[in-house]
Amino acid sequence: MIKITEKPIDVQKVIDTATSLGAGAVNVFIGTVRNTAHGKNVLWLEYEAYESMAVAEIRKIIDEASHRWPLLGWAVSHRVGTLKPTEVSVVVAVSAPHRRESFEACQFIIDSLKAKVPIWKKEVFEDGEEWVSARPEGVSATYN
């Protein structure tokens, strides 16, 4: 299951989707919204996705993970829209026969997702807003 959704993610449903009878391990990564960035309070984040390409890129990442580790089940759900601190932005769940491959595959999937999948977030502060990682370090990008 690959899902890009505006609705709150049902974490248990993602886990259930990834679970398999032959699995000795289900590994879950839950990404949440932090309340600070650059030493400032984050009011909320705005997430957006290029949905059709995001789904295609996540599928490629899952395919590669399935070649490298004996995955028995998997599910990825990513939220878009307005998210406040503590809300869940992304859930990756994989199941495998043993724990080691479940840890490695889950980390590979979330690391690859963050590096390649066309999803963006904007931090909204009290005094402005900023697209995350858009500009090189040291270049001020906060504007009102």
């Binding site: 290029y50 997702l113 963006w120 990682s133």
Partner: peptide, 10 residues
């Protein structure tokens, strides 16, 4: 065709 600035999902 789409422009893909640095991604920041997760």
């Amino acid at each position: 065709i789409a422009l893909i600035p640095p991604v920041s999902g997760g």
